[in-house]
Amino acid sequence: MAIVTMREALNQALREEMQRDKNVFLMGEEVGAYQGAYKVTKGLLEELGPKRVIDTPITELGFAGLGVGAAMAGLRPIVEFMTFNFSILATDQIINSAAKMLYMSGGQFNIPIVFRGPGGSAFQVSSQHSQALESWFAYFPGLKVVMPSTPADAKGLLKSAIRDNDPVIFIEQERMYGNKGEVSDDPEFTIPLGVADIKREGKDATIVARSLMVPVALKAAEALEKEGISCEVIDPRTIRPLDIKTIVESVKKTNRVVIAEESHPFCGVAAEIASEIMERAFDYLDAPVKRVSGVDVPMPYAKNLEDAAIPKVEQIVAAVKEVSYL
């Protein structure tokens, strides 16, 4: 165990898995010589060589498709998007090829590929570079969608994603690369996909949060504890397939739930979770499910406006009080 940043944890996962399986290769813009736009791939080129760590031209559709093709022929590509904003250019290959290949081929061609990179809001990069796209990808059967919130989760989940035999969308949070935490150095340390983590136990209200919102929710829980409200914080970690069981069990215990997310509310993941809770735990709810989402506008540049667009501790606290009739 050592305290490392999420950036380092991801780097360890990449290194360990590439050392473990020579069919794993990494490609993307600036992943090699530049050492990664966010330094997640630092040192990998020198260590593993240019055959395994490949700098691509800025050609997202092209290299995403190339990755899927390589996966069809037996390799296990890791495709880095410098940010997930650019994955929008590659969605044809992710959705029409990667997600559907196994089904269309009647089970003949699975696509073991990881599309990874930072997503969500960054710091003052305005509308085109601050987007939470998980609900796009989670919409499609055939894709798995993972969003870690701690360095340990990042490492364990990325290793599982690389070993997984299906296409995995692995969305890191740009603002969280520097967050620190304890991380195992056991090369066999993995965290299974599809399993939620209870980040904090509680009995009065449930807060479901993912990625950037997990630390925010934990702070909110701390504040509420002082007021005598005990909150359970659940991080689904994998958005698809979603561990709804853990969430529902918590709701049955607390009877009230707030779902926090940095993405837009409309057709978002929180909306889906709310719907599942309503279907599975209607009779256990003492209050309507409450969402705390990013503001439903493109991300602005100005610092004050940007701040206003992303959910804060106070909003989660207020939402928990609302569902607690306080």
Binding site: L61, F63, L66, V68, M72, L75, P77, Q93, N96, S97
Partner: peptide, 18 residues
């Protein structure tokens, strides 16, 4: 999807060379 197979084939060729 028109043209969708072209990057895929490029990837298959990439894999055989790899």
């Amino acid at each position: 999807i028109v043209g969708g197979q072209i990057p895929l084939a490029t990837g298959v060729a990439f894999a055989t060379k790899y």
